[in-house]
Nucleic acid binder design. Structure first.
Lengths: 152, 152
DNA sequence: CTTGACCTTTCCATTATGGGAACCTTCATC
DNA sequence: GATGAAGGTTCCCATAATGGAAAGGTCAAG
């Protein structure tokens, strides 16, 4: 099976399959005399595994860990569980951040008439409430030299 | 005020201030004879506006739109509201995707003993449930019949 | 006048993905 | 056998937003 067929059968694009190969996530497959990559059933399993993990939001690095655990017959399921739980926590954290932004924005939108007049609490808030907290300011000036400040 | 002070006072890193300048999000400020960038109160307002918008998850492009609306005395608040509402929807959509992943993973984790044994429904699921979709499955069985399996 | 903190520009790296060019291979069809 | 379409190969480029590092100029305090 060549790369296009493997892509269609796994749901991972040919482009990404080659990429995963270059970064060492998957092994280099055999080649035909003409240089075409040749994939077999095992490769397909791996690719499907990868697509599924990717759909669950795992990073390439985490997929590497998962693949290693998958192939390791002697690993304890606790290892897998730990990885999954950490990922769940990260997903929830990110989601919560987004929802927090959404709530804030929703509050502002609620106060905005949204008519043809120009008064707009949304912009007013963006313009003014931006310098909340002197701690932050002090913190920033003290810290930014040594740590990257991403202010979140 | 030079760039370091502007950064500390706005919460936007010096690096990012320069970046925003190169991409045209903010205007190039004046310079001292030595070439140092010089910022004034107005610039500071803009930078604070930017940081606040960034904290709300707006992209650079959207910040550009917001800035334009902010500076445009004649714009209708409805324009701002529309932009904000679209952004709220996008935030909610992303959050929902993350939560959906989280839920799926949580379900799998729930079924995993997480002990020293190797049985692990998480990996099993990743390995197996990946081939939903009949097109794909049909394709696979058609294709794999003609090629020997050359795994790794 | 030296020192250290700050400024300048330029280049590189990150993550995961896609696009495109230039060129070669396979295969079906005329 | 020639031809063209479809698909393979590599290599380079681009994305969004951010940081890091290098090499060098500037400023204020000692």
């Amino acid at each position: 099976m060549n790369i296009g067929e493997a892509a269609a059968a796994s749901g991972v694009s040919a482009k990404m399959i080659r990429y995963y190969e270059t970064i060492g996530l998957i092994a280099a497959p055999g080649r035909t005399a003409a240089g075409y990559r040749v994939y077999g059933e095992n490769d397909l399993h791996t690719l499907r595994f990868i697509r599924r993990a990717r759909d669950l939001g795992f990073s390439v690095e985490q997929m590497g860990e998962l693949l290693a655990l998958w192939r390791d017959r002697s690993r304890a399921s606790a290892d897998v569980k730990r990885l999954a739980e950490r990922h769940i926590a990260a997903l929830d954290r990110k989601a919560e951040q987004l929802l927090e932004m959404s709530r804030t924005l929703r509050r502002l939108v609620h106060e905005c008439h949204g008519d043809r007049r120009s008064a707009c609490p949304i912009l007013d808030d963006l313009a003014e409430s931006a310098d909340e907290g002197d701690d932050r300011r002090r913190l920033v000036s003290t810290i930014t030299s040594q740590f990257g400040d991403r202010g979140r």
